[in-house]
Design a protein around this nucleic acid. Structure first.
Lengths: 372, 372
DNA sequence: TTGTATGCGTTATCAT
DNA sequence: ATGATAACGCATACAA
């Protein structure tokens, strides 16, 4: 029992509602009301109690709150840890940062799980039944992730980063198909004929959608798709390198990689083959990670802000938590096509309006949609 | 109340100890004992209860457990989010991964805070008083971080990643001084005369220690330290680039950068100045991030495993939690000097034992110490 | 070895 | 508008 009667603030023993009540001369319930901004409390006492809370830097015990109210202001963040090299790509770190920042500013805490398959079963239990989470943001990449399925079957609110192919879940995504299509169209537009692609894993929705965008563009322009110009990677630099080595045999004059890291790998392979970028082979990536602006040559890519996605995911999740039973959210956020020198300019023969020199950097906003 | 009398398992309503007790025909306490591996329970009943727990995939409510036992199997992870570009450097992501992995395998969960200064006060409260954390791993970089001080003054067990200059706290670190010294000595050894350094921020212990190592090496060999050969960066690529531009005026023939990212920046500046690495300027970095092996030329650097540090930090923390009142832990883990082509080989004039060609990659273990 | 009773700090329902 | 009191799910001291 914390018997500080006018004692000085101390960090040693956490205070309780009871302590604050005693110190401000009211009852425990009133303090609770103040904390939970209940309307039924006189402004005077409110101020008084608030003052004491401030002074003693009181923080309600989350465990107790969770027990009593079923609400903790804690959300889970689940990230796949499948590929070991996951963290040489800043996409997930940025996502984490966005989620964390949003939680900070909304007075939430975040519980992080890097989903290792071997612990999956236990993890799901922890997430669903630990009684601490108000909701979950899950950045699953796998199309048929069992964790997503479990969440879907539970009553825990959650936001999926990246759309789901079949389930009607709350999600947030960029329009991968459209962005990949635009990138490929751009390559066609500047006169490339032999456009290769390095896809992401086809059991991942982003990998799948970006490949679909590539196909769509070629079909639209009546180009046949040469299967030999398609190589699958796993979003990593190394896989991009290997894929490019294979594609090289078809002598492509352009390559669209489904991630910047794979584009880097492809550029490394091209460099080693003494091919020039973009003269011999134009390269386009996807993600616009920081390093993309500093490669030699700088990489043309599709910009998406992972941290913005994290923020929006959290804010939407909180909204879902606050409004149970609301409609399913499908949010598609903006993407931007960033033209840098790795994809060259128009071959001079058509498109008269080409304004002088090749711009060093030029960015084209693509879309902003938000359903529901 | 969960009145399932022989009903099938369901995810919809979490079970309680009471439910499991009823289903296995024992009392709530016995179930609790089984879960907490209390010796005082007959093997027969133990099996029986365990079976039911398995069948229904029961997971005790963490909030309730935390309340009742003052222990939650949750640890906090605090990471400074000061520099925005924090996440283009994989150091922290790897650290997070290590911490997460160790938690997974020890049945702990991790609560993540990216410490934004503007939320610092509230964060400290959350961490210390939310009643959910058994302990904390904090990767503060600042030498006088107020969060560390608060933790130190509280009774919450914590592990600091990176030593503390003044406080006697539990920490885990690499021997930055020694590693930086060895790197600098190597540059001297291969005959470089004008060795510059790009330091990290001097209010960060790692930045400070690595600079001290550089100084130590020069002093040992009776070289005077030219202040113009010292430029301070912030561990980022951009800062390394800028620092190198400045150092270039002194025409150094070698540079030791306190991080790989800064080394990358330096290499970019050198490339733009048409200087050759390592012929004109030898470059050494620190961290051995994945990209270091793939630069042109590959970067000589000091290898440290952030994820291994994360694992060890968690395991030590758990040990501290399990043994309250034990001695302060000071752990120094191994570092390795990885020689790649960015720092060249001996200039042919001394050291006869030079075995033929410059090895492509060669690594020299440096030390493994563990105090207490 | 097992069951009973109490308390952890909070919210929520009921009085007042 | 405020105070007493009963849950919330679990661990544990104590009784049996």
């Amino acid at each position: 029992m914390c018997m500080l009667l006018g004692a000085l603030p101390t960090n040693l023993m956490p205070l309780t509602l009871e302590d604050i009540a005693r110190l401000s001369g009211v009852s425990r319930s009133t303090v609770s009301r103040v904390i939970n901004v209940d309307a039924n409390v006189k402004e005077g006492t409110r101020q008084k109690v608030l003052q004491v809370i401030q002074n003693f830097n009181f923080q309600p015990n989350l465990a107790a709150r969770g027990l009593a109210a079923g609400r903790t202001n804690v959300i889970g963040l689940v990230i796949p840890a499948g590929v070991a090299a996951l963290f040489s790509d800043p996409y997930f770190p940025q996502l984490i940062q966005g989620v964390s920042a949003a939680c900070n500013s909304h007075n939430y805490s975040v519980m992080l799980w890097l989903a290792e398959p071997e612990f999956e079963r236990r993890m799901v239990s922890q997430i669903l039944h630990n009684g601490l989470l108000d909701g979950t943001v899950i950045a699953s990449t796998l199309m048929d992730d069992p964790i997503v399925k479990s969440l879907y079957e539970s009553k825990m609110p959650f936001m999926l980063i990246g759309r789901h192919p079949t389930l009607d879940v709350n999600y947030l995504d960029v329009d991968n198909v459209r962005a990949a299509r635009e990138a490929t169209l751009h390559l066609l537009h500047i006169g490339r004929k032999n456009i290769a692609t390095i896809t992401g894993p086809q059991n991942q929705i982003a990998g799948y959608d970006r490949y679909q965008g590539y196909l769509t563009a070629l079909h639209e322009r009546n180009h046949r798709v040469d299967p030999n110009l398609v190589a699958e990677g796993d979003f990593s630099e190394a896989s991009g390198y290997i894929a490019m080595l294979r594609l090289l045999q078809q002598k492509p004059d352009a390559v669209f990689a489904a991630s910047d890291m794979m584009a880097f790998g492809a550029m490394r392979a091209l460099r080693e083959a003494n091919l020039h970028i973009p003269e011999d082979v134009a390269v386009i990536g996807f993600d616009d990670i920081p390093a993309s602006a500093k490669t030699e040559p700088p990489l043309t890519t599709v910009h998406q802000s992972a941290s913005a996605m994290g923020v929006l995911a959290v804010e939407t999740l909180i909204d879902i938590i606050d409004h149970p039973g609301s409609e399913t959210r499908h949010i598609v956020i903006a993407t931007e096509f960033v033209i840098r020198s790795s994809c060259g300019t128009l071959k001079s023969k058509s498109e008269g309006g080409d304004e002088g020199k090749n711009p060093v950097e030029q960015s084209i906003p693509m879309l902003y949609q938000s359903h529901q």
